[in-house]
């Protein structure tokens, strides 16, 4: 449905639509700022994020001139922790999405192109994976590791992120597989690999990129959720989620611990989603595939 139009879309019109879209400018601006904070955190942060300034006098200070976002219960500067947390949260999300998008795209393309038993197996696995909320799956799996590192966490997040993309790319591939020019390429003796990489993937890549952009937001939310449950990024490494976790027991008095990291997540995820939507609109202005690519109900509950 609609795949043919995607196959024949013109790249210049896509670029034009993107450039003229206000959402894109806004989203790129926000993401740029967030990325700058992440990259230059050591220079921007007023304090060492681990430094306990004075555990018996400077703990839990409300926002002030010296500490614009206050201090936490260990007398550490929240602004500094938030900046370093940006690094952790953003890196985890971007790496996880890159890995899962690559893997999901490859698998989806292969399954769709090869078909048969391979396709059946991959799709049954995806079905099974969809039948448990990712958060529950992750909690069970994380229980296996006592103290998992940020790297392992990233791999795990990547491991639960590829289902949607592979399903999507498979659908695109199925549609393109029998398109005239692909059939022609095959008839001319192109190898399966060549057809896949030269004809199938380039056409499926658009929706994969849209889906990946949208899932950056989802992964940030998922990481924050896990950290909030105390099983994501482990303290004292700051991440947005575990700063909120630290504040969640102090809602009534140390509210700034909960509020600011939450706003950081909200703004970043919003920018990712806005960008993803703009991309989708640009690639498929008539939206023939209504929200097919992002899980409309967040399955992490």
């Amino acid at each position: 449905m609609g795949a043919a139009s995607i196959g024949h879309r013109s790249d210049s019109s896509v670029r034009g639509r993107l450039v003229s879209d206000g959402r894109v400018r806004l989203a790129l601006g926000v993401l740029g700022c967030v990325a700058l904070v992440a990259i230059f955190a050591p220079m921007l942060a007023p304090y060492d994020p681990r430094l306990q300034l004075d555990i018996s006098h400077l703990q839990s200070q409300p926002p002030s001139f010296a500490h614009p976002l206050g201090t936490d219960t260990f007398s550490r500067d929240v602004l500094s922790r938030l900046m370093y947390g940006t690094r952790v949260s953003l890196t985890v999300a971007l790496v996880a999405v890159f890995l899962s998008a690559t893997f999901g795209t490859m698998l989806g393309a292969i399954a769709g192109y090869v078909g048969g038993a391979v396709d059946a197996i991959v799709m049954r696995v995806v079905d099974a994976a969809f039948s448990i909320p990712a958060i529950l799956l992750l909690i069970v799996v994380i229980a296996l590791w006592g103290n998992l590192s940020v790297v392992t966490l990233t791999l795990l997040l990547a491991g639960v992120g590829w289902f949607t993309i592979s399903r999507l790319v498979r659908a695109e591939t199925l549609a393109i597989r029998d398109a005239d020019y692909v059939v022609a390429a095959r008839a001319l003796g192109a190898s399966g690999w060549r057809v896949l990489t030269r004809h199938v993937l380039p056409n499926a890549i658009g929706s994969a990129v849209v889906s990946a952009t949208l899932s950056v937001g989802n992964i940030i939310l998922l990481e924050a959720g896990l950290s909030y449950l105390g099983i994501g990024v482990r303290p004292p490494t700051p991440s947005w989620g575990n700063i909120i976790e630290e504040g969640s027991t102090r809602l009534s008095d140390v509210w700034w611990l909960t509020l600011f990291p939450g706003l950081a997540i909200l703004v970043t995820v919003f920018a990712c989603n806005a960008l993803g939507e703009a991309l989708r609109d640009a690639l498929d202005p008539r939206q023939l595939l209504p929200a097919h690519d992002d899980a409309p109900i967040r399955m992490n509950g």
């Binding site: 939310l221 959720g225 909030y228 809602l251 939450g262 997540i265 909200l266």
Partner: peptide, 15 residues
């Protein structure tokens, strides 16, 4: 809607 869709669920609950 997009803002609401981007809110971390546990954070919204906490707020």
């Amino acid at each position: 809607l997009l803002v609401l869709y981007s809110v971390p669920d546990f954070w919204l609950a906490l707020v």
